[in-house]
């Protein structure tokens, strides 16, 4: 029994151990990896990904899946940039309105996603995937395929201004992470996500309005996708349909590698943070040690399988689907 408990505790810490192991490995291969400047670079590429991963994590906690992030990020990024430029081009002036506009757009996309899933009883996988395509089409329609540039120095200071060696963007992302942690651990809604993910029948029998909760989960996810979109625009200064590219693979991989179970009810924001760092450390590390590019995708896939294998307890699974 004691041995079982020890295994359980160890398994909880596996994602962190994987992260530490990766850092040691890359440092051994190239000492430049372990420098403040490089960690700042990893922090920049992780900030938008962290927001999107937290968003999809809420949905995964409930045992559903959301694949609409690429479309939602594209729409939010484009609307944010258009609003900012239309209102004077600076968030110091009236341009700050662009931030609530983007968050609202994210929430609306999430609500539509949730409503389609719950009211029309379409599996979340299909509903969100389709909505993602609609989002990409919508952003293409808005931009006509063009790129929108953001030159506002104040907004770009998220990337350019550093405190303690790290860009402002990272602190903003950490603040959002704390908000997500608060929602997860200290609100009824947050606890209910776990309840639904752990056993939907039981939650329903206890009188929980599961449909409503699911919609709230998708709205929350949409808002975090919008935050991800804003950070992505801050990082490159460009808003376009392509802004959403790659977020689906990146975010779901991060959530799973971090130890949040795809079947729901297990995991959380800290796991997601570790997961995002693992994926971005791998991405950065492979370039830093000079791994040939035709190996990189394959190595990433292998590392992801290993991390998931190490961090999930398969004895509690009756079957794997």
């Amino acid at each position: 029994m004691n041995r079982f408990l020890a295994m359980e505790t160890l398994r909880k810490w596996v994602p962190l151990l994987v992260l530490a192991g990766l850092c040691l490995f890359f440092t051994a291969m190239n000492p430049h990896f372990l420098t403040l400047r490089n960690f700042a670079r990893i922090a920049i590429s992780s900030s938008p990904a962290l927001m999107v991963a937290i968003g999809v994590m809420f949905v995964i906690l409930m045992g559903s899946i959301d694949l609409s992030m690429e479309g939602t990020v594209a729409v939010c990024a484009v609307l944010f940039a258009l609003t900012l430029n239309a209102l004077g081009g600076s968030i110091a002036g009236r341009g700050w309105v662009a931030i609530p506009v983007a968050l609202f757009a994210g929430a609306v996309m999430g609500a539509v996603n949730g409503l389609v899933h719950v009211r029309l009883r379409i599996p979340s996988f299909m509903a969100s995937l389709s909505l993602g395509f609609i989002g990409i089409g919508l952003s293409l329609l808005i931009t006509g395929g063009d790129r929108i540039l953001i030159d506002d120095p104040l907004f770009r200071s998220l990337l350019t201004v550093r405190v303690g060696g790290f860009p402002l963007m990272m602190y903003a992302a950490l603040a959002c992470l704390l908000v997500a942690w608060f929602i997860q651990d200290h609100t009824t809604t947050g606890r209910n996500f776990y309840a639904v993910g752990g056993g939907e029948e039981l939650a329903r029998a206890s009188g929980l309005n599961v449909g409503r909760l699911r919609i709230i989960g998708f709205v929350l996810a949409g808002i975090f996708y919008a935050l991800g979109a804003i950070f992505a625009v801050a990082r490159l200064g460009i808003a376009e349909t392509e802004t959403g590219r790659n977020f689906m693979f990146m975010s779901i991989t991060s959530v799973v590698v971090g130890g949040t179970a795809l079947r729901g009810g297990e995991g959380g924001v800290w796991n997601t943070l570790i997961g995002v760092l693992i994926v971005n450390v791998i991405g950065n590390g492979m370039v830093v040690i000079g791994l040939a590019d035709y190996f990189q995708d394959g190595v990433l896939g292998l590392l992801v399988i290993t991390a998931v294998w190490l961090s999930t307890d398969r004895r509690s699974l009756s079957f794997v689907k």
């Binding site: 430049h32 990896f33 400047r37 590429s45 950065n284 492979m286 370039v287 000079g290």
Partner: peptide
């Protein structure tokens, strides 16, 4: 490209 360039800067 952004990510690759920051990797190059470290290396």
């Amino acid at each position: 490209a952004n990510q690759v360039m920051s990797g190059f800067l470290t290396r």
